[in-house]
Design a protein around this nucleic acid. Structure first.
Length: 421
RNA sequence: GGAAGGAUGGCAGAGUGGUCUAAUGCGGCGGUCUUGAAAACCGCUGAGCCGGAAACGGCUCCGGGGGUUCGAAUCCCUCUCCUUCCGCCA
């Protein structure tokens, strides 16, 4: 949800900004709905005020008196009128709110123009990208891959996209989770262990509903959703709260499984670990003062990048263009690992500043210097998504003897130097 | 799953149809007094929306939604959540 003053006072600027996102959105008629709504509310409140004043007088009259009875019959009309005007006002308000909620967040001025992912900018690259990897093969073609990550049994037990990680591979997953959590702790993020289901209110606050309903697994009996990312429960931790200004910035990290139906992407890049219905991810979330959110986005991205560097994985940083950025995002960086075997980039992290967009929906505020509550800015970033990092490790660290070298930083939780036959 | 009782301001807790613009207490903020502090005393004390340049004024909010009534924190329906007891259980 954007700041309504943009709609009232800077429609032209707002139009330009929204147009950059390639969203269809009729701001003129939404502004008109706002005017209608305010008119209706004003007349309903006026009528209601009159009714209240009359009621105060009535309370001073003798209950059964002639004057009282006269007044009752007169007030019946007023009551009906108030009811009618209030209904009209509520209708106008609902119409406006629904339309208003459909306005996407404003892209930051530093976000480049563009129509699609083809226009995303490569900000930087790190490591031996597209270098000399004589043994490189796609991770799913490594001879022992199927033994350690069992897809057929996952299909039998759950369905496609729900593999088992077996033995040393399971330990490696656990090592990655521990490594990510511990690094985040060092960087000042407090660890939380979160619910992995959320209610509709939470999913609406972060923007999954109504926009991406089809992407989530839902239990209609309980009206709860399996989370597509820890962003949803963790951001909602402070929903409907006013945070002490001195607590900002607040930083949290959570490991959770994530569930995505991936409807509509059937058959697209789904081999091996590239795209799963359930995967593990460590997520960073920040609530910050509005003045510092874009600096906080930089440090968030640097926190995520540090992990890839310690894992010795070549990667690039993409600045997502205005046409490819998400509905609630103001600015977004993606981190992509170079998968040397598949010879393609795999997205392992998305770091975003939502400015006040989620905070307004979620009603997360802090007290400004004037004592008035105002929305915080929220940010989050994967650090990192485990299966694709695993794919990166398998493809980039594969040795001539068919084993895979495990990065030094994981040694604490995974004592062996190699994994494989 | 069964039964009963609850949900009121930052917290505790009154209020069962008409100055409730919600008592009282605690906490918090400001002031008086004091060398300073404490105590005591005095004052203030939430959120949203509408109008307004502002000062300020109005409307809404007593878990959510709906209803009854001229009038609802208060009565009715419904949903959610909490507590206690019983049952089952990691």
């Amino acid at each position: 949800m954007i700041d309504i003053s943009h709609l009232r006072q800077e429609v032209t600027e707002l139009k330009t900004a929204i147009a950059r996102k390639k969203f269809e959105c009729d701001l003129d008629s939404i502004a008109e709905l706002d005017r209608e709504r305010r008119e209706c509310i004003a007349s309903a409140e006026k009528a209601r005020g009159g009714q209240k004043a009359a009621n105060d007088e009535m309370s001073k009259l003798q209950k059964g008196s002639l004057e009282f009875l006269e007044k009752v019959s007169r007030m019946k009309e007023v009551a009906a009128e108030v009811k009618e005007l209030e209904a009209v006002a509520k209708q106008a308000d609902d119409r406006f709110q629904e339309a208003f909620l459909s306005i996407p967040n404003i892209p930051h001025e530093s976000v480049p123009d563009g129509n699609s992912e083809a226009d995303n900018q490569v900000v930087s690259t790190w490591g031996e990208v597209e270098g000399d990897f004589p043994h490189a093969i796609p991770h799913y073609d490594i001879p022992w891959f199927g033994k350690m990550i069992d897809f057929p049994r996952g299909v039998k037990v759950a369905g496609a996209g729900f593999p088992f990680y077996v033995g040393e591979m399971s330990q490696l997953v656990r090592a990655l989770i521990n490594f990510f959590l511990e690094e985040a702790g060092t960087n000042g993020y407090q660890e939380v262990h979160s619910p992995i289901v959320v209610n509709a209110a939470s999913a609406t606050a972060t923007g999954q509903l109504p926009d991406k309903e089809g992407q989530m697994y839902v239990d209609t009996n309980e009206d709860i959703y399996l989370i597509p990312t820890a962003e949803v429960p963790v951001t909602n931790f402070f929903r409907d709260e006013i945070l002490p200004a001195e607590d900002l910035p607040l930083k949290r990290v959570a490991y959770t499984p994530c569930f995505r139906r991936e409807a509509g992407s059937w058959g697209k890049d789904v081999r091996g670990l590239n795209r799963l219905h359930q995967f593990d991810k460590v997520e960073l979330v920040k609530w910050v003062h509005p003045d510092h959110s874009f600096e906080e986005l930089e440090s968030l991205r640097i926190d995520a990048e540090g992990l890839l560097q310690k894992l010795e994985l070549p990667y690039r940083v993409l600045l997502i263009c205005s046409g490819d950025i998400g509905f609630p995002h103001s600015k977004q960086f993606d981190l992509e690992v170079w998968a040397a075997g598949q010879k393609r980039w795999l997205e392992v992290s998305s770091c975003s500043n939502f400015t006040d967009f989620q905070a307004r929906r979620a009603n997360i505020r802090f007290r400004g210097p004037d004592g008035k509550p105002q929305p915080v800015h929220t940010l989050n970033g994967s650090a990192l998504a485990i299966p694709r990092v695993l794919a990166g490790i398998l493809e980039n660290h594969l040795q001539a003897d068919g084993r895979v070298k495990i990065p030094e930083c994981l040694r604490k939780w995974f004592p062996q130097e190699f994994i494989g036959p």
